[in-house]
Write a protein that binds this DNA or RNA. Structure first.
Length: 876
RNA sequence: GGGAGCAUAGCUCAGCUGGUUCAGAGCACCUGCCUUACAAGCAGGGGGUCACAAGUUCGAAUCUUGUUGUUCCCACCA
């Protein structure tokens, strides 16, 4: 059989994914095994895979595959989120391209288009996840607007309303004039902008020639001003107490008010108040009983109330009003100014504070147990530092604005009656019944009920996700929710800790009395190597699909994981994937080597092979032990690095080199079977990280029946580590390295065999010496008296002197120089140790074992110095 | 403005309750090698006053305080 010297992932990956899914190996049903469950953070239904998803989902897949291989009944529930604002914006744009305006459509027509769009473009991301190797239980795929999940959302709304935790109220909300909807505080991102500060003077009523100058970044809102506010102790303005001012252009008379809210140092110390268009002004408006004049339409254009520039966009109006103010003699000056402006996260439109009637969900009561669950480590955060962020938010939680003025989403189940009252119910029939009971005099029919036009915030369905995917809200006693809930771990990004993580915890406790997950692993942000966030607009984000085509899914998974300790940002660089690909190739070639051997069952197992097999098994055991701890702490990158070194350094560079038969020689049967077993163990350990290549090799190593798979195999058990074998072998490897070092230094070709003299006549381990012979290419190991003089190079390992005779190859002068340098270092080292030991307080206070250690150091150093001195004197 | 975190080799990071796991790993770099799987490779090698300054201690990368730099979160002063 000839195998290509380069591993080709393309040929392998699709085949095995097909095999796994054909045999429904990702599917899980409740049974007697312990459950391990993860629900995917549902990506936007219209989203495409980006690097953040790659990281997040690779981690989930590693955890799920590992759990599956450790005897758990593991399930990973996939699905998508309807993402109301983002999806509706996409559909609106799509329709616009078709020449259709949303305004011309009825709600039903629009939703029909939206569903069509979703069917056509939705779920691409789930297909892309298959390429990554994601072992999701696809039979369980959910969508937040599926009928059953939607029903659950309505149930929850009604339940909260009945509990008095949902109310309707007029509030200042963050208005997105592009999407024409309110958005929550969490959906507003503040950006620093270069803008201008305009100084405008307002005439004092009844005092000709007297003015108050204010400073504002939004001169167009002057048209909605209803007061000017100054600090009560500001002497500059004390004389105007009780007077009124005239708003420029509109000539409205407004009161002068005094409040400590105003910073005297900022601008002129006088602040114009527009209660309709600024949250702080609004609060001052309430306090001082001011009039509220809303000068904007919902789309951000000026309304009739503004009197001027009616119909003009707010940013156009800002420019247009300047010459008008100038002409009126009101503009004093303009300064450059940097300020922060809120943008809608979804549409990138500047947020307009707006007063409106919205639905709110009370948070304070639900927040309390949710906070406690995390602070008491009932739910564990990895890394722990996010507990701080979490508690800070939870302690200052504000009510949640849950209504959105959109069509795509879960419609608010409130029904308005002709008498301006409303009822909240699961459906229109129920609403009618309730309404009839409440208002029998109205003689209501279904046609009299008008359902609220708004939908709910997307997160109002996402916060139920761990419950609703197992139908735990509609049927709280069903076997699925009982078996899989609480889920084992949540893998997500820290930027949705409030949006999603906190609210899921509240929902879990509120409706099931139990936390939704035991562990939360926060991934870092994927950045480029210049530390910039990966984003579409910067164009610094590679296409994951292209990457997987180039390096293989296993290679990219390796690259993502190697550098992503929990919570740390991942500085992504293609070279990481390259390293992953190289590793895959290394494993592939190790397989090629072993596959190429012929086996002679009659041959005995050579001694160096026997010890190497024992050692390799022990090393694997050691790594498995370390990995237990790494996984317990979600240190996936460290676990992967341990495997990487185990396979590359120990298995390939050391083990295979020892057991490798001579050129075109057969290998003995025992060794071949040992190697096959070891190889099989290694691919098993690697499988959660690199599922494809390992499945391929697992099948190539032995004949397997159809339906067998590595992904369903069990991880090897962990046994206590035999430390002395590992230590002895490490010392042997050190001797080999030093012989090789001599070789490299003296330019002796690897094929020229050397003699190694051991200056120690005590009996030795024959097997380990055989290893030295093979790896250092030593044909003779001679045991001689310690004082035997050898012309050549030497070194000391574990208090024993070794030398390599090199007649004529050694420059005595050079050698002496080197030895003297070594001697000098050893003497310095000894000095340090002696100084410590002569310090009475050290000897008295330090623990016994530390003092012992220092004594041993002293003995070692003294022995080394003696040997070095002896050697130098012989060379002289 | 308030809070939290971080600062260790050129880069990315490990280093637990102070003491042989104490200065480490991977990558990058340098020097030899087409040595019977792999040049996507093999062998060998050089890199760090552990940000700075004080303090605690017999002993500090590790604990305390301050300084500087940096990242993130919250607030949103017009």
């Amino acid at each position: 059989m000839t195998l290509a010297s380069k591993y080709d992932p393309q040929a392998v990956e699709d085949k095995w994914y097909q095999y796994w899914t054909d045999h429904r190996m990702f599917h899980s049903e409740p049974d007697s095994r312990p459950a391990y469950s993860i629900v995917i953070p549902p990506p936007n239904v219209t989203g495409v895979l980006h690097m953040g998803h790659m990281l997040n989902n690779t981690i989930q897949d590693v955890l799920v595959r590992r759990a599956r291989m450790r005897g758990f009944n593991a399930v990973w529930v996939p699905g998508t989120d309807h993402a109301s604002i983002a999806t509706e914006a996409k559909v609106v744009n799509f329709l616009k391209e078709q020449g259709i305006d949303k305004k011309d459509l009825t709600r039903e027509q629009f939703l029909e288009y939206a569903w069509q769009w979703k069917e056509k473009h939705g779920g691409i991301i789930l297909k892309q996840l298959r390429k990554l190797g994601a072992s999701c239980d696809w039979d369980r795929t959910k969508f937040t607007m599926d009928a059953d999940l939607s029903e659950a959302v309505t149930d929850i709304f009604v339940d909260l309303y009945n509990k008095g935790k949902i109310y309707r109220g007029v509030r200042m909300v963050n208005w997105d004039p592009k999407a024409l909807t309110a958005v929550s505080d969490e959906e507003v991102v503040y950006k620093e902008l270069q803008s201008k500060l305009y100084y405008v003077r307002y005439a004092i009523e009844g005092e000709p020639g007297e003015y108050i100058t204010i400073a504002t970044t939004r001169p167009e809102t002057i048209l909605g001003d209803t007061a000017i506010c100054m600090h009560p102790e500001d002497e500059r303005y004390a004389k105007y107490k009780g007077k009124r001012a005239i708003v420029p252009l509109v000539n409205r008379s407004i009161p002068l008010i005094y409040d400590e809210y105003v910073e005297r140092e900022f601008g002129t110390g006088a602040l114009k108040i527009t209660p309709a268009h600024d949250i702080n002004d609004y609060n001052l408006g309430i306090k001082h009983h001011l009039e509220t004049i809303n000068i904007f339409n919902d789309n951000g254009t000026l309304s009739e109330n503004a009197q001027f520039l009616v119909g003009m966009d707010r940013f156009e109006a800002r420019k247009a009003i300047i010459p008008m103010l100038e002409e009126a003699g009101s503009l004093v000056k303009i300064e450059d100014y940097t300020n922060k402006v809120g943008f809608s996260e979804r549409t990138n439109e500047v947020i307009e504070p707006k007063l409106s009637l919205q639905w709110f969900c009370k948070m304070d009561e639900m927040a309390k147990p949710a906070l406690k669950a995390v602070m008491d480590n009932h739910i564990k955060f990895y890394p722990e530092k996010f507990k701080n962020t979490y508690s800070h938010w939870m302690e200052n939680v504000k009510d949640w604005c849950i209504s959105r003025q959109l069509w795509w989403g879960h419609r608010i189940p409130a029904y308005y009656l002709p008498n301006q009252e409303f009822v909240v119910a699961h459906n229109v029939d129920e609403a009618l019944n309730i309404a009839k009971q409440k208002y029998p005099e109205l003689n209501l029919t279904k046609d009299d009920l008008k359902q609220d036009e708004d939908v709910m915030d997307t997160w109002f369905s996402s916060w139920l996700w761990p419950l609703s995917v197992f139908d735990g809200i509609r049927k709280p006693d069903n076997p699925e929710i009982k078996y899989y809930y609480p889920t084992s771990a949540l893998i997500t990004a820290p930027d949705i800790i409030f949006f999603w993580v906190a609210r899921m915890i509240m929902a879990g406790i509120e409706w099931r009395g139990d936390i939704p997950f035991k562990d939360v692993y926060f991934t870092g942000t994927v950045r480029d190597k210049l530390h910039r966030k990966m984003s579409k607009s910067l164009g610094n984000s590679p296409d994951p699909i292209m990457l997987m085509e180039k390096y293989g899914a296993d290679g990219v998974r390796f690259g993502m994981l190697l550098s992503s300790p929990a919570g740390n940002d991942l500085l992504f660089d293609e070279s990481l994937c390259e390293q992953g690909r190289n590793f895959n190739n290394k494993v592939w070639n190790a397989f090629r080597l072993v596959k190429g051997w012929t086996v002679d069952a009659n041959l005995p197992q050579p001694p160096h092979t026997k010890v190497a097999v024992e050692w390799m098994r022990e090393r694997i055991n050691e790594v498995l032990t370390d990995m237990e701890e790494d996984f317990a702490n979600y240190k996936l990158s460290e676990a992967l690095m341990a495997i990487y070194k185990l396979v590359w350094d120990d298995f390939c560079s050391c083990f295979l080199e020892i057991v490798k038969p001579g050129f075109q020689q057969p290998v003995d049967g025992k060794t071949f079977s040992d190697i096959t077993n070891i190889f099989e163990t290694l691919v098993t350990i690697m499988h959660p990280f690199m599922p494809f290549i390992t499945e391929e090799l697992w099948h190539a190593l032995r004949d397997r029946a159809d339906g067998e798979a590595l992904m369903l195999s069990q991880m090897p058990d962990v046994k206590p580590v035999n430390k002395s074998l590992l230590d002895d072998f490490a010392a042997t490897r050190s001797i080999i390295e030093q012989v090789r070092h001599i070789r490299s230094e003296k330019n002796i070709a690897p094929k020229n065999a050397l003699t190694l003299m051991v200056h120690d006549e005590r009996p030795v381990n024959e097997e380990l010496e055989a290893v030295i012979r093979k790896l250092a290419n030593v044909d003779k190991i001679e045991h001689v008296a310690e004082s035997t003089e050898v012309q050549g190079a030497s070194f000391i390992e574990s208090q024993t002197k070794y030398s390599v005779p090199l007649e004529g190859l050694v420059d005595a002068g050079e050698e002496i120089k080197k030895l003297q340098a070594e001697l000098k270092y050893a003497e310095g080292f000894l000095q340090g140790v002696l100084k410590k030991l002569s310090n009475e307080r050290f000897v008295a206070n330090a623990p016994q074992n530390v003092v012992e250690m220092e004594r041993k150091k002293q003995a070692d150093a003294e022995e080394k110095i003696r040997l070095l001195k002896e050697q130098i004197s012989k060379l002289q």
